[in-house]
Amino acid sequence: MIDNDRRKFVKKGLFGLAVLPFGMGVLTTKAFAAMPMLDPNAPNAKALAYTPDVATAASHAAYKAGSSCSNCNFFNAGTGACPLFAGHAVEPNGWCQAWVKKP
């Protein structure tokens, strides 16, 4: 005999797994929509020599001409987020010493 309850459970479970990525996309977008800007005086910002204005970074030893948050591999242009500064957005025209060129 076939157990109909088990079949219904499996179908609902598979449907839930198929829909999960769509729901997570919406939740992720809303979660990052209102991130506060990173304070340059925050300890993690100071540790990476973050500055919201790339013009002030030119004197730093690790600075490379043309580098800024907007062309860094870590920067997410859609949210302004940087994983190095979790929970905060950074200025696209900013810079820090962890800058890595976007491929």
Rank of each mutant, 00 (worst) to 15 (best):
F32T: 14
Y63I: 02
T29Q: 10
L38D: 05
L27W: 11
V19K: 08
W95F: 02
A86Y: 00
P21G: 06
S68V: 04
V54T: 08
D3P: 07
A45I: 03
A57G: 04
G66A: 08
F22C: 06
T79D: 05
F15C: 02
S70D: 15
R7S: 09
V100M: 13
A89R: 15
D53Q: 13
R6N: 13
M37D: 09
G87L: 05
T28V: 14
F75Q: 07
V26S: 02
H60K: 14
K8Q: 11
A31Q: 13
Y50M: 04
A45N: 01
L17W: 05
F85D: 03
M24R: 08
A33E: 14
S70M: 14
A42T: 07
S67P: 00
N76S: 08
P40M: 00
R6D: 15
L14Y: 01
N44I: 11
F85S: 03
M1V: 10
A49V: 09
A57L: 05
C72V: 07
T29H: 13
F85Y: 14
D3L: 10
A98T: 01
N41H: 07
T56I: 03
L84V: 12
N44D: 15
Y63K: 09
K46F: 05
V100A: 15
F15H: 03
D39A: 06
C72P: 08
A57W: 06
P36W: 02
C69R: 05
A77F: 04
F74Q: 14
I2A: 14
N71Y: 05
N76V: 03
A31E: 13
L14E: 06
G66I: 11
E91C: 05
P40G: 02
A65I: 01
A47I: 03
G78E: 10
L48H: 06
A86H: 04
K64E: 07
C72K: 12
R6V: 15
C82A: 08
N73W: 03
N93T: 15
A65R: 09
G23L: 11
A77P: 13
G16I: 04
G94I: 00
A47Q: 10
